[in-house]
């Protein structure tokens, strides 16, 4: 599988990364090398294998529906790069 420039640009756009031309080219090379190596997996026949996402077969880990007091707002907002007294602030999302 060849990693094209378009694939790198598409992945960069989806993951909100800005790459200049040199970075794009470098990433394309490095990703190609890795993905080429990943293609070794095609040698393994997994036709009848179910994908395994959770390694241990535990299930139904649930908590009770009981309210715990929320955090102090000031503490939650304290690390924000931009905020007002009550909220996190970003540039306007609508025109």
């Amino acid at each position: 599988m060849t990693i094209t420039k378009e694939i790198v640009e598409y992945a960069a756009a989806l993951s909100r990364l800005k790459l200049d031309d040199a970075e794009t080219e470098d990433m394309q090379k490095q990703m190609s090398a890795i993905v080429d190596y990943m293609d070794v997996l095609n040698k393994l026949d997994t036709e009848n294998v179910e994908p395994l996402s959770h390694v241990f077969s535990i299930s139904n880990v649930m908590r009770e529906d009981e309210v715990v007091p929320s955090y102090d707002r000031e503490a939650l907002l304290d690390n924000a790069p931009e905020r007002n007294e009550e909220c996190f602030v970003v540039p306007k999302t609508v025109e």
Partner: peptide, 9 residues
């Protein structure tokens, strides 16, 4: 509720 007062990490 006031903004961001029903929140936790």
């Amino acid at each position: 509720g006031e903004p961001n007062t029903h929140c936790c990490p």
